[in-house]
């Protein structure tokens, strides 16, 4: 009997020491610091409430997002936007519009097909809607809200948000089509070196021969349309469709990427819009009517012009249908 009792006591003590052995089981402090520190890491815990990330007690990265968005992104984004606008205004004041040197011949050659123009303008239209509504989301609170008051501004912001969400996918569609449409004319050519060396003759006014698109247009194509366009679309889709149950982390990151790239995109587009409208004589006509004057083609895209002339002189060449016959 004594022996049994002894064995039992031994077992019990063994159990106790065994239980005490792993450091994790050390007598818990009253304040479970580890537990609370882990709560801030943002790992999902147990909860009966169904939904996305309902098990995350504290998601700390939102604070980072807030600091970035309300701080540098708004401030430097606004400064960048104003500086670019100002730079373009100064450039226009100093350099003026780039005029044609020789008189127009009146002979027109086709530059953009009807389909190309449709794609361009749907891209441009959706871009402008997206840019304005997006700028409103970031700066509207600081610029328009004091002017409009809360009720009217929220009405405008709701309109902007819905436009932004629905036009966004349309923009992606148009840039995908535009990519395939224009990519073959945006491939690097040897003449681009000359354009880079002379900065396109933008400042000097010198002449740089180029193919259908010069290097400036190619840069806008590859950096703007392809790189930024895709980045912005992907990050935008993450934000636009919350029904794929993506968490807050990825949405915060997507928002930062989206805003930073969008601001760069808008600033680049200002340059594109400037040179395509008031900055250069005859540039807008190319995209509006699809035809350019021979003088314009020779002065801005000489190599392309010669190529077109060569094609036209081939026997059996048919002028593009719908070409306005001999313009006055």
């Amino acid at each position: 009997m004594k022996r049994i009792l002894f064995l039992l006591a031994l077992c019990a003590s063994l159990c106790v020491t065994a239980a005490d052995a792993p450091p994790a089981q050390a007598p818990a402090a009253h304040n479970n610091v580890k537990l609370w520190q882990d709560a801030r890491v943002g790992q999902p815990q147990f909860t009966t409430v169904r939904g996305v990330e309902t098990g995350v007690l504290i998601q700390s990265n939102g604070e980072t997002w807030r600091e970035l968005r309300n701080g540098p992104m708004t401030l430097y984004g606004g400064i960048l936007f104003c500086v670019v606008l100002g730079a373009i205004a100064v450039f226009y004041k100093l350099r003026g519009a780039i005029k044609l040197k020789a008189p127009m011949t009146g002979r027109l050659i086709p530059r953009f097909s009807y389909f190309e123009r449709t794609v361009h303008w749907s891209m441009a239209g959706s871009f402008v809607i997206l840019a304005l509504s997006g700028l409103n989301m970031l700066f509207g609170k600081h610029l328009l809200l004091p002017l409009f008051g809360h009720s009217l501004f929220s009405w405008l912001a709701a309109l902007c948000k819905n436009l932004h969400n629905f036009v966004g996918p349309l923009f992606l569609c148009s840039i995908v089509v535009a990519f395939f449409l224009f990519v073959k004319d945006n491939i690097w050519r040897a003449s681009d070196w000359q354009w880079i060396r002379t900065a396109g003759g933008l400042i000097s006014g010198g002449h740089v021969p180029s193919w259908r698109f010069n290097f400036g247009e190619k840069a806008w194509f590859w950096f703007g349309l392809v790189l930024i366009g895709l980045t912005i679309s992907i990050s935008g889709f993450v934000l636009d469709f919350p029904n794929f149950e993506q968490g807050r982390n990825i949405m915060q990151t997507a928002n930062i990427v989206h805003v930073v790239f969008a601001l760069m995109f808008i600033c680049m587009s200002l340059g594109h819009i400037y040179i395509g409208t008031i900055g250069m004589e005859g540039a807008l006509d190319a995209m509006r009517t699809g035809y350019v004057d021979e003088t314009w083609a020779r002065e801005h895209h000489e190599l392309w012009f010669e190529e077109q002339q060569h094609k036209m002189s081939q026997p059996g060449a048919v002028p593009a249908s719908g070409a306005p016959a001999a313009q006055s």
Binding site: Q59, S60, G62, S154, R248
Partner: peptide, 15 residues
């Protein structure tokens, strides 16, 4: 006034 943009949801640490 709320436009349902989701920004408060990104920023709030408590969901």
């Amino acid at each position: 006034m709320c436009i349902g943009c989701g920004y408060c949801f990104y920023a709030c640490p408590f969901g």
